[in-house]
Design a protein around this nucleic acid. Sequence first.
DNA 1: TCTGGGGTCCTAGGACCC
DNA 2: TCTGGGGTCCTAGGACCC
Length: 422
Amino acid sequence: MSLFALVDCNNFYASCERVFNPGLNGKPVVVLSNNDGCVVARSNEAKALGIPMGEPLFKLRSLICQRGVAVFSSNYALYGDMSERVMNILQDCCAEVEVYSIDEAFLELRFFQQSESSLLAYGSELRNKVLKWTGIPVSVGIGPTKTLAKLANRLAKKNAGDGVFYLHPGHSLLQETPVAELWGVGSAYQKRLHAIGIEHVAQLAAANAAWMHREFGVVGLRLLKEVQGTPCYGLEAPPGERKNMMVSRSFAQDVYGLDALTEALAVYATRLGEKLRRCRQTAGAITTFLWANRFKNKRADGQSCFARTLELPFATANTNDLIQWSAAAAKSLYQQGTNYKKAGILASELRPAELLQTNLFLPESQLLRSAELMAAVDQINQRLGPGTVFFAACGSKPDFKLKSQRRSPRFTTQWEELLKAK
DNA sequence: TCTGGGGTCCTAGGACCC
DNA sequence: TCTGGGGTCCTAGGACCC
């Protein structure tokens, strides 16, 4: 029988903040999205106060004051580094690991004694090791498919045990677990399932396969099989070969002018170039997006998303190229009088940077020179801090568009920000 | 006043070809 | 005038995930 474990860090961002600030233990903690807009992580105490995921900060002001909620801006340098430490430990403990997101990983357990007690013991050992070595608490869910392991993880968090749960397909808890708790069931599927009387996971597991296929397509069929204990998904290879790469941000305020939009896009193009070069990829096409403010749309037609895709004459990861083409696309998309709230650039048709692609008008030597220039820029920015060198198109203060007023120090990645003894 | 930033997969429909 | 069947590729949009 196949066996998967899902290891998920508890309230990951909030836990990271606590590792370096133990005074936060037992207190409500929330972490905000970029721009300090919404709540994206909550400690258990914050959840108990009824703070929902995704709630905008402005709706929480009074609660935060009254209950002494600690509020942090996202500190991705810190979270990314802590994540790497956790994942390294998991990879030491198990040969087959898929890092699924910044705070969770699937493990495929092979050659494993499959009694429930030995599985639970293995989970506890993982848990204790990660907690001891990083300070991050994790929960472990184990089951014969990824979907069941994922659900087991939820149950591990909910049922105050020791944070480990093993779920087999016939488990009695499935009779009272709502289908919405399943991985792959969002609000749309939930509504359709409810409409035909399927409320709980056990009811879904008893559904007819042909009928599921007809009603919900292959996605629904796989969901059914997974819930029944037949794996349809294995561990995925690391996303070395990503298909797209995106950089997008909301603006702190609505933007009306083309110049300001172009400047913002230049900043995103810079980030995108860095991301591409870090992964040794080039983009064969880029799509430039502009979004009008969807909460206060001032357009007569109400349209809010505008996009233009450009097939590039040659694949590139050069910041200057990305800036030029995204600016050209923005110019063609721009409409006066629209209040823009967000913009972004998507790189697609990614291919390895080693495959230099030239054409008649672009000799190889020129491509090599441009790659060297970019490498030099990256090196300087790495050594002296991000944004030390940048293109003039980004304006004079490249980071002016992001609000991040409550970020904790980057304890583990910047020497100047090391935790100091008091 | 203030509302995240990424991604993936699947399906349907149109264009085009033999 | 009649107007098949099968395949591929592309795109837009929906649904889901963290």
